[in-house]
């Protein structure tokens, strides 16, 4: 790990009387591959939403690349370099694939300080080509299959030129081959120096991908460490299989 890119300290979030997250600490290093697992309702997506600014955390601090993120709107965080894919793909349905990717190029990649503005059209093509959707650049998202939709989601996230990508269940519902496909894609992105937090239920993928594994149960972090060791930890096993 080469210094912390993302630091989360004492993160807490409640919805009325329900405690979704409680005192979660987490660090992600630059270029790191982190797996985040936990049973349904354990607070994974709430955490993503707190990190990305969709929700406001009640307690705790989030620091990203030296910037305190507290109270920052979601679009500002995207511009700082946090990108996310949504658990259920949320493309812009009336825009073509090329224009879907163009929005973050225009609004996030271009405004970042010190980044030479690239030709948006060429960058669109590059990104769509990377995920294998270049031949459908002029189509609408409605024409895509499930896996293509996930790939578009990833391409759009990458278009903002992030330093951290939070992939929220990008593989859910995909076939074995398709999971490998997305896995290879994420590895390529990581190879470009982007830190990736993978939230996933498919253990085969998480274990193959992660350098470090974090487990959330009922809003608390119960494990953080080497994936192979974490999955053998008794309380992690208990959370998944019952004790």
């Amino acid at each position: 790990m080469t210094g912390a890119l993302l630091t989360v300290a004492g993160l807490g979030k409640r919805f009325g009387g329900f405690i979704a997250l409680s005192d979660v600490d987490l660090t992600v290093g630059a270029g790191e591959r982190l797996g985040l697992i936990g049973p349904n309702g354990s607070g994974k997506s709430t955490m993503v939403n707190c990190l990305c600014g969709t929700l406001r955390n009640d307690t705790g601090n989030v620091t990203f690349g030296g910037h305190a993120l507290d109270g920052l709107a979601a679009h500002r965080r995207t511009r700082l370099g946090i990108a996310r894919s949504f658990q259920l793909p949320r493309p812009f349905p009336t825009l073509t694939l090329a224009d879907n990717v163009r929005v973050p190029i225009l609004y996030a990649a271009d405004v970042k300080a010190g980044r030479v503005a690239v030709d948006p059209r060429r960058r669109c093509e590059e990104l769509l080509n990377m995920v294998g959707l270049l031949d459908k650049a002029d189509r609408k998202p409605a024409d895509l299959t499930q896996i293509e939709m996930r790939k578009l989601e990833l391409a759009r996230a990458m278009a903002s030129e992030p330093r951290l990508l939070i992939a929220d269940e990008v593989m859910a519902g995909l076939s074995h081959r398709e999971v490998d496909d997305i896995l290879a894609l994420l590895m390529t992105l990581n190879g470009q120096g982007i830190a990736i937090v993978m939230i996933e239920h498919i253990m085969r993928a998480v274990l193959a991908f992660s350098q470090r594994l974090v487990v959330l149960v009922a809003g608390r972090k119960i494990a953080d460490g080497d994936p192979q060791e974490v999955v053998r930890q008794p309380d992690v096993v208990a959370a998944y299989l019952g004790s």
Binding site: A74, H75, R76, T78, A83, F86, P91, P93, V103, Y107
Partner: peptide
């Protein structure tokens, strides 16, 4: 650029925000 931002808001506001659209 403004038009793309407007269209993104019309289509999906949280996704627009996540794409850096204020």
């Amino acid at each position: 650029r403004l038009g793309y931002g407007f269209a993104a808001i019309r289509d999906d506001e949280p996704a627009a925000e996540a794409s850096g659209v204020p």
